[in-house]
Write a protein that binds this DNA or RNA. Structure first.
Lengths: 335, 335
DNA sequence: CCGATTTAGGAAACCGCTTTCCGTCCTGTG
DNA sequence: CACAGGACGGAAAGCGGTTTCCTAAATCGG
């Protein structure tokens, strides 16, 4: 390529990499032309080795089929793309070991930054491993940012699960409900844990006695939510169910309808996240809106800032959550 | 690292990279131990430069928030992971230019293979660009496999959209429907085009006269499907609607229910893909099951085979589709 | 018109690995 | 016991770029 243009490798590199070293306009054009003619694209791998920068960022998601992540990822791409960073997504598919493998892969491939999205898992073994991995990654110059609760100490963007949960529960309380059940996500997930905590806090705050039979795990999936709802109805006859995420709430309302329980006439259902789907569910869902896409944008911006200017006083910033009332919740049945 | 173990770089490399060059067990252990102690992980970028292999594959998806892709991606990961390949996903978010940029990024980063999933777009300009890009990529040793219709000529796995569509339409015809409308995906997408063609063919096969007022575009999204359904009902009063994918079918049935049209009492609705969601939609969806995850698996296996043994007589293989009847379709209303 | 800068471009070192090539030592064999 | 050949490990040459260092030519001030 350099030969074809009749210049040295150095010169070719300088114009193609946008170096600050001066190159005459004539030479520059000649290089650009031949590069274009030959369809030459510099080998990013070689460049990465030389510069210790790959211009890529890796996004670790817990489960790619969960629309929650899609929104966040989109936000990340919104800002990464225009800044010429390639965004690579990798999904752990809810497997702890896979998740570690995946972080290891990103680190080994030297992505410039790793974004952790909703992969915070509460497990001493996992925490130790992931901490070691990410610490080494950071020591080598990688930046890690978290877009969800996570045991690893890194800057990022969060939102308040407790406040959000309190909002739904209070909404339900205001409608007169007292037997409010909860379908939780996988207990090992930190998001999940916090949301459940939010549910419990809000109830005890209102002086409603806790009742373990009103809680059931639904694994953050639609079928999980459906099964949990069925179990809860059979066991504890709640008048309202608040799920740990929208997916479970949708599954729950579907199953309840199938079983002949009116939603919200006989039982109210609420979710969390406000994924797009929620307005199209069997019954449009009352939920807590989390500004997912914005979260992604802010996260990516944080990454770029750190990459450009160093960590600074990097810490967590917070995005607001908001109750969205649709038609899946209503007053407690009178009889 | 090599020094720490008291061996030469060559030796360290040999044990860490699993070379066939003999290394005594004692030395091997020493290297392994110190590597482990230091948490040393070889720089994949450097390794990639030396070997011209990155042990990564890139998956180009058209829209990451479409659950269709999630399933396929999962299938790919099923086989890539165990074979120690990292899978990177990148989403074009329905933007043609972005999609090209994304292929370019994968190529520049020298992923060993690129899987094209449902990103086949019918646009002369795009086709020319993408062909040039991928051809160069292949010339350099990259392997490309397509998991959906795509203008670029490459091996892969497909399934028959025409047969699938014929199955749903015939199902509807058998139920007595004659005014069968169609909500299509984005016209530029090849999948979309084929499915629409399948719909038209099946109708004309049955001797039902084509009616352009019975076709409407729904962009493969839930809202798009909902809007299209509303338009169709106002304009042409179909007794059945077959959508180009499940997402649109779900949106459509939701909207129709909202507008007071019974599903399937007054209008039957069918989709295509059989994404997980479809059994949880407002009304469990009659649809065409596409073995998405299996498709991903087969695709990844094809990639690995080519990577290991060369292209061989690489061509398209085909996965079967199958009609799944649920409760969103029923006999044509009698009056 | 001359020395000091500035501008432009080339040579070569380097990024962190793999791999070829080579030398040493050990073993088995006639 | 001499020697062929295999086991083992090190030195060094890439891989394809970037960047430092250096030189030659052009420009400038006085």
């Amino acid at each position: 390529m350099a030969d074809a243009a009749g210049v040295s490798i150095s010169t070719a590199s300088r114009v193609l990499s946008g170096s600050s070293h001066p190159v005459s306009p004539a030479t520059r054009d000649r290089v650009l032309d031949t590069a274009d003619r030959l369809g030459f694209e510099p080998n990013r791998v070689a460049r990465a080795l030389a510069t210790a920068r790959t211009q890529t960022m890796g996004v670790v998601v817990h489960d790619i089929s969960d629309p929650y992540f899609a929104e966040i990822v989109r936000g990340i791409e919104d800002v990464a793309g225009p800044r010429d960073y390639a965004t690579f997504i990798s999904s752990a598919n809810r497997d702890l070991a896979d998740e570690l493998a995946l972080i290891r892969a990103f680190a080994a491939n030297r992505v410039d930054a790793i974004a952790l999205v909703a992969s915070g898992i509460n497990d001493p073994g996992y925490e130790r491993e992931v901490t070691g991995l990410l610490r080494r990654y950071e020591e080598r110059g990688g930046v890690v940012v978290k877009l969800s609760e996570h045991p690893y100490d890194a800057p990022g963007v969060r939102y308040d699960n407790l406040t959000g949960m309190a909002a739904v529960v209070n909404h339900l309380l205001a409608l007169g409900h007292r037997r409010i059940a909860h379908i939780s996500g996988p207990p090992e997930l930190m998001v999940s844990e916090q949301r459940t905590q939010g549910y419990r806090d809000a109830l005890s705050e209102a002086g409603v006695a806790p009742d373990p039979t009103l809680e059931e795990c639904g694994w953050f999936s639609m079928d999980g939510g459906a099964d949990a709802a069925e179990t809860l109805m059979a066991r504890a006859r709640p008048t309202a169910i608040v799920a740990g995420n929208d997916l479970m709430a949708i599954g729950a309302s579907r199953r309840l309808l199938d079983l002949g329980h009116g939603v919200p006439d006989q039982v109210s259902i609420a979710g969390f996240d406000d994924i797009e789907l929620s307005s199209y569910a069997s019954v449009p869902l009352t939920t807590v809106r989390v500004p997912l896409r914005e979260l992604g944008r802010l996260g990516a911006e944080r990454i770029l800032t750190i990459l450009d200017d160093g960590p600074g006083t990097a810490s967590m910033s917070e995005a607001p959550v908001e109750l969205v009332v649709r038609s899946s919740t209503g007053p407690v049945p009178t009889h």
